[in-house]
Design a protein around this nucleic acid. Structure first.
Length: 345
RNA sequence: CCGCCCUUAGCUCAGACUGGUAGAGCAGUCGACUGUAGAUCGACUUGUCCCCCGUUCAAAUCGGGGAGGGCGGACCA
């Protein structure tokens, strides 16, 4: 694969690449650049995580060295979202869930290196560098960088600010050429691009995934169960949620159903060589079949494809794509129970 | 160490002074209308009033104690 193809593969289905020229240059000078993505093991993972993780399959195919950081300390630093006692159990759950998603996306999880935050963030070199960063960063700068990521409140903890600087430092500690994350992470990684060169590290190339809309219209909300598909949802639950989803005919804005098809279902189906079949009553023109997203989008926008016909097909496809992940999670008997005793205990 | 303030529905809060077993907005649920959903109408649901003890016929409300959270003062060799 030539550098241009690799660049294209890494950049597809993303929200933004900072900068695409730097990415291309990286492939020119190196055989296997490294990329890392970090997850703080807090709440249960859902379809939004899955769409982001699916791209790791592209990274592997493009020949990148992929590292997934399970940022356990971060999960506690951000307003104690995860109690300190549950960090171990939630880290185990995140790792298993992420591996299952990579595998379900058609890639080999063995090609991904997993690292825990506590593996290196308590070591002296890291800690020392963190203190130096703390001394050299203003309150307002750190606050601004983390404002889209760290929980905001009237009386924020210091942890949220340390969180932000640690994440910036992680790029250097993990020696990543590329950082990958949702577009909400932009502020933190722009801070990293600013700080790291001053401290003798390379400026990381940033690849940002889009944040998908929730099924109820606006942003996907972790606290609103109807707005997202959980990885543990069975086919019936997925069908109900998609059926109830906001999905105005012909409109793509805030349309979670269309976004999930675009960023999750079709990439996985293409990998498998499958098409999306939409069953439609003869009265409205009979069944349809789509080999890719673009054709479906143009039919949807033109009005040829009605939401009422699309929804059942989309629900079945989504359920199909998450099924292997759900099975993997449920067969690990105490994984969920240990990580979320309130919900599964 | 001292003082002051806050804690009521899933969320934001009213009610407390002048005791009579609790309200609004948002959210949620269910119908109507759309070949989906939303929007719009129509209806409905929701509570250890932070905990304990006391006063009283009666306590979210008054008194005492405690817990959690917030703010300020003092100390500064």
């Amino acid at each position: 694969m030539d550098p241009a193809e690799r660049t294209e593969l890494v950049a597809r289905h993303t929200e933004e690449v900072v900068t695409e020229a730097e990415l291309a240059a990286l492939f020119d000078e190196r055989d296997s650049p490294s990329v890392y993505i970090g997850y703080a093991p807090t709440g249960e993972m859902h379809i939004g995580h899955y769409t982001t993780i699916r791209k790791l399959a592209d990274f592997i195919e493009a020949g990148l060295e992929v590292t997934v950081l399970v940022a356990d300390l971060h999960a506690h630093l951000d307003d104690a979202k995860s109690p300190f006692e549950l960090l171990e159990a939630r880290s185990a759950y995140y790792r298993t869930a992420i591996e299952a998603m990579i595998e379900a996306a058609g890639a080999d999880p063995a090609g991904v290196e997993f690292v825990r935050g506590t593996d290196y963030q308590l070591e002296e070199p890291y800690t020392l560098e963190l203190y130096r960063l703390l001394a050299g960063t203003t309150l307002s700068r750190a606050r601004r960088a983390g404002s889209e990521v760290v929980r905001q409140s009237e009386n924020p903890n210091l942890g949220g600010l340390v969180y932000t600087l640690m994440q910036s430092l992680d790029v250097a500690a993990l020696d990543a050429d590329i950082v990958y994350g949702g577009i909400d992470q932009r502020g933190i990684y722009m801070l990293a691009r600013e700080q790291l060169p001053e401290r003798g590290h390379e400026k990381p190339v940033c690849v940002f995934a889009p944040l998908l809309s929730g099924l109820t219209g606006g942003k996907m909300s972790a606290s609103e169960s109807g707005s997202k598909i959980d990885l543990t949802d069975d086919d019936g639950t997925v069908a109900e949620k998609v059926q109830a989803a906001y999905c105005p005919a012909g409109e793509l804005e805030d349309n979670g159903v269309m976004e999930y098809l675009r960023y999750l279902v079709f990439p996985v189906f293409e990998e498998r060589g499958e098409a999306l079949v939409v069953e439609r009553p003869a009265e409205y023109g009979g069944d349809l079949s789509y080999g890719g997203y673009d054709a479906l989008e143009s039919d949807f926008v033109s009005g040829e494809l009605h939401p009422a016909d699309l929804k059942p097909a989309a629900a079945a496809a989504i359920a199909d794509v998450i099924a292997p992940v759900r099975e993997r999670l449920l067969e690990a008997s105490t994984l969920l129970e240990d990580a979320y005793p309130e919900t599964y205990g």
